[in-house]
């Protein structure tokens, strides 16, 4: 059983492009995350993950460990 979800997580504190690349790597290497892309211009983290393996909170934790905060979550359709 897996529960694939896709979300666009809007961030505040994503101020330097290098941090964006680092965040992207950190989220990508989190087990259960199948896809992660940080869009610097938009200030968002677009992520696809299996919620049975990694709860959203774990991803949020990675974000806050990098010194950023979540301002909004926009769920996307997993099929995209």
């Amino acid at each position: 059983m897996s529960d694939i979800r896709r979300e666009m997580i809007m961030l505040s504190g994503l101020n330097c492009p290098t941090c964006a690349a680092k965040l992207e790597k950190a989220v990508q290497s989190t087990p259960g995350v199948t896809e992660a892309k940080v869009v610097f211009g938009a200030g968002s983290l677009n992520v696809e993950y299996d919620a049975t393996v990694v709860p959203y909170e774990r991803i949020a934790e990675v974000v806050s460990r990098m010194g950023m905060t979540v301002t909004a979550r926009v769920p996307g359709s997993a099929s995209r």
Binding site: M8, K37, V39, G41, A42, S44, N46, V74, P75, G76, S77, R80
Partner: peptide
């Protein structure tokens, strides 16, 4: 509306 938001973010990328 959700699609619009996604497409804008993706276009920016």
């Amino acid at each position: 509306f959700s699609q619009l938001i996604y497409l804008v973010a993706e276009a920016g990328e």
